[in-house]
Computed example of a mutant assay.
Amino acid sequence: MARTPKQGRAGRGTTLIERVRRAQLVEVTVDLIAELGYAKTSLARIAEGADLTKAAVLYHFPSKDALVRAACAQVLETLTEEVGAALASAPAADGPTTYVRAMVGHLRAHPRHTRVIVEAFPHLEDDHTSERRWGPLAGIIDTAAEARGLPAVDSRSLAVIIGGAIDGLVGEALRDPDYDTTGPAERLNAMIESALSG
């Protein structure tokens, strides 16, 4: 029987100590990827950062990729929760602009998480398909268009364009920490409003 994420190595439920250790390993992995990049983040460095042996790391995660997946999942969960909360409190018609503000704001406020997304996701190709990126935003755009009483829009293309613009803003902020993404994000939102003005 396959072991589920909530089960330990022997198929039993994980203990509190195991959960704490796994969380520590994920945090160390996030820090190392943010500081060194994916290629230089090795199991040996993760073990050293957690003050464990490599064998102890492998007890909790069977490979570097498994640990990187867990780190990416944590980063995405935090991002999704924050953006989701912003969308839930905004009118449906304002969904696309709320999405841009929340995404850019979160990624600006959490540069470590941003570096993990940039560094690690290309190595997890099965988790990072194009449609998984633009699909949810296209749905937000469709909902906004409907709330505004607009005819169907090319939400896929608009979502790809918005996603690319966000990537560009965030990438520039990673290269230059003094680059303020707030103004450019609002200019992007003005373009979105123009596209959804009917």
Rank of each mutant, 00 (worst) to 15 (best):
A2V: 12
A2C: 00
T4W: 09
K6D: 15
K6C: 12
Q7E: 15
R9S: 12
G11P: 11
G11N: 13
G11H: 10
R12Y: 06
T14Y: 04
L16A: 15
V20T: 12
R21S: 14
R21I: 12
R21W: 00
V30F: 02
D31I: 00
D31A: 13
L32E: 03
I33A: 05
I33V: 15
A34P: 06
G37D: 11
G37Q: 08
K40T: 01
T41Y: 08
T41M: 09
L43V: 13
A44E: 15
A44P: 00
R45K: 15
G49I: 08
A50K: 11
L52M: 15
T53G: 14
K54A: 10
A56T: 14
V57S: 12
Y59L: 10
Y59K: 10
H60D: 14
H60Y: 13
P62N: 04
S63K: 12
K64H: 07
A66R: 10
A66S: 12
A66T: 00
A70T: 03
A70V: 02
A73Y: 06
Q74R: 15
T78C: 05
L79Q: 12
T80E: 12
E81K: 13
E82Q: 13
V83T: 11
A85R: 15
S89E: 15
A90S: 15
A90W: 11
D94A: 14
G95Y: 03
Y99T: 01
V100K: 07
V100G: 02
V100Q: 08
R101A: 10
A102R: 00
G105E: 04
H106L: 10
L107E: 06
L107S: 05
R108P: 01
H113E: 11
H113S: 13
T114D: 06
V118A: 13
F121Y: 08
F121P: 00
F121V: 01
P122Y: 00
P122W: 01
L124G: 05
L124I: 06
D126N: 11
H128R: 08
T129H: 11
S130C: 07
E131K: 11
E131V: 10
R132L: 14
A138E: 06
G139W: 04
G139T: 02
G139R: 09
I140H: 03
I141G: 04
I141V: 12
T143E: 14
A145G: 01
A147T: 04
P151R: 13
S155V: 04
R156D: 07
R156P: 09
S157V: 05
S157N: 11
L158G: 06
V160T: 13
G163N: 14
G163R: 09
G163P: 03
G164N: 09
G168H: 06
G171Y: 07
G171A: 12
G171H: 09
R175C: 02
D178L: 07
D178Y: 00
Y179Q: 02
D180Y: 01
D180I: 05
G183W: 12
G183V: 14
L188S: 04
L188N: 07
N189C: 15
A190V: 01
I192H: 06
A195T: 08
A195D: 07
L196C: 07
S197Y: 04
G198S: 10
